[in-house]
Amino acid sequence: MKSENKIIGAGMLTAITASLCCITPVLALIAGTSGIASTFSWLDPLRPYLIGLTILALGFAWYQKLFPKETDTEKEIDCECATEEKRKFIQTKTFLGIATLFAATMISFPHYSHIFYPKPEKEVVIVKESNIQKVEFKIDGMTCASCAEHVQHDVNKLPGIIVATASYDNKNAVVEFDNSRTSLADIQKAIDGTGYKVIETNIK
Rank of each mutant, 00 (worst) to 15 (best):
S3H: 09
E4F: 08
K6C: 05
G9I: 03
A10H: 06
A10F: 13
G11R: 00
L13I: 03
L13H: 04
L13R: 01
L13K: 02
T14Q: 02
I16S: 01
S19I: 09
C22S: 15
T24A: 03
A28T: 10
I30T: 09
A31N: 05
G32R: 05
G32S: 09
A37E: 02
L43A: 06
I51L: 06
I51H: 04
I55V: 15
L56T: 00
L58Q: 02
A61L: 09
W62R: 08
K65W: 07
K69H: 15
E70T: 13
E70V: 10
T71C: 02
T71Q: 07
E74S: 13
E76I: 15
I77N: 14
D78L: 06
C79I: 15
A82Q: 15
A82T: 06
T83R: 12
E84R: 14
E84T: 12
K86I: 06
I90Q: 09
Q91K: 05
K93T: 12
K93D: 04
T94P: 11
L101M: 11
F102L: 12
F102P: 07
A103G: 06
M106E: 10
I107T: 06
S108H: 11
F109K: 06
P110F: 12
P118V: 06
P120C: 09
E121V: 10
E123R: 14
V124H: 10
V124K: 13
V125N: 13
I126A: 11
V127A: 13
K128F: 08
S130Q: 14
Q133Y: 10
Q133A: 10
K138W: 11
K138T: 14
G141P: 01
A145D: 07
E149T: 03
E149F: 09
V151K: 05
H153S: 04
V155F: 01
K157V: 03
I162A: 05
V163E: 13
Y168V: 00
N172A: 11
N172E: 08
V174A: 03
F177N: 04
F177C: 14
N179Y: 01
S180H: 11
S183R: 00
S183F: 07
S183P: 11
L184H: 00
A185G: 00
D186G: 12
Q188Y: 00
K189Y: 10
D192A: 04
G193P: 12
G195I: 00
K197Y: 03
I199A: 05
E200P: 00
N202V: 04
I203T: 15
I203S: 04
